[in-house]
């Protein structure tokens, strides 16, 4: 199974994340991640499942450059991670409990902050960028919540705000770190449906860490394509999807949310 994934011959799809023989351990302790090899290709949907302490967070932290692997290499969009600078190609939805719930920012301020990373000091946001923010809010059906404080919203609404932030740069890769923790089952389901819709209709690659095995199974199948230690990777490849790709994410998400009458 390993071989299959690593040597998969793929001309037309760019390698989005390449994990090459990566190991990680904290001082003198048993390795958290050992000799991990895995590649994520364009428009793959990768579900990463593992029990507590399996190294999910550690792996995510390495993939976004927060910590360095003890050995091995990581490449993002075919560049070594140390040289990678196009961070706006990656949308990141943090764990709900990573954020201070009393943070006094409004939904709009949070969504706009998705643009801050690439803005130079002194530069103000342009009209075009403010429109992007409105698009992003509308896409997720939370435009009415724009001026509400994030802490006063429900878990599902908060998670949508963070997804809107991640989408504001039209990312090629979306990383979701346990996006469903602390959200009720019904909202979880509609959130996951929305993610699936984005995957099916758009050219976005997904890496999603989750505890919720059932939801992953239902979309990605029961068979892990790769196992390393306690980490399990479930993948839906782009060639399993229809080609029809919509270009306007905002428009298509709006349509989707309307059609499904999704609960926020």
């Amino acid at each position: 199974m390993n071989e299959l994934n690593n040597n998969r011959f793929d001309h037309c799809h760019e390698c989005i994340i390449s994990i090459e023989d990566v190991s990680f351990y904290y001082e003198n302790k048993t390795p958290v991640i050992q000799n991990l090899n895995f590649k994520i290709f364009e428009r793959d949907f990768v579900g990463l499942i593992g029990s507590n302490g399996a190294g999910k967070s550690t792996l995510l932290k390495m993939l976004v450059g927060l910590i360095k692997p003890v050995s091995g290499n990581i490449r993002l969009f075919d560049q070594p991670i140390s040289e990678f600078r196009d961070w706006d190609r990656i949308g990141y939805v943090p764990q709900k409990n990573a954020m201070n719930p009393f943070f006094p920012a409004t939904v709009k301020e949070i969504v706009l902050s998705g643009l801050y990373g690439k803005k130079k000091m002194f530069k103000r946001l342009t009209k075009r960028e403010l429109e992007k923010c409105d698009d992003s809010l509308q896409a997720l059906g939370i435009e009415k919540l724009a001026h509400r404080r994030i802490g006063n919203l429900s878990g599902g609404q908060q998670q949508r705000a963070f997804l809107a932030r991640a989408l504001i740069n039209n990312p090629d890769l979306l990383i979701l770190d346990e996006p469903m923790v602390g959200i009720d089952a019904e909202t979880q389901e509609s959130f996951f449906h929305m993610i699936q819709h984005m995957h099916k209709q758009h050219n976005i690659t997904f890496l999603m860490v989750s505890h919720d095995v059932d939801m992953m199974y239902s979309y990605l199948g029961h068979e892990a394509i790769h196992t390393s230690g306690k980490l399990k990777f479930y993948v839906k490849h782009s060639h399993d999807l229809e080609d029809c790709v919509e270009t306007d994410l905002t428009h298509s998400l709006k349509g989707f949310i309307k059609g499904e009458a999704l609960k926020i």
């Binding site: 932290k61 976004v64 927060l66 990141y92 954020m99 943070f103 990383i175």
Partner: peptide, 11 residues
């Protein structure tokens, strides 16, 4: 201030 991890991810 909002979220250090997300801040690092945006470079």
């Amino acid at each position: 201030t909002l979220d250090e991890d997300a801040a690092s991810v945006s470079g």
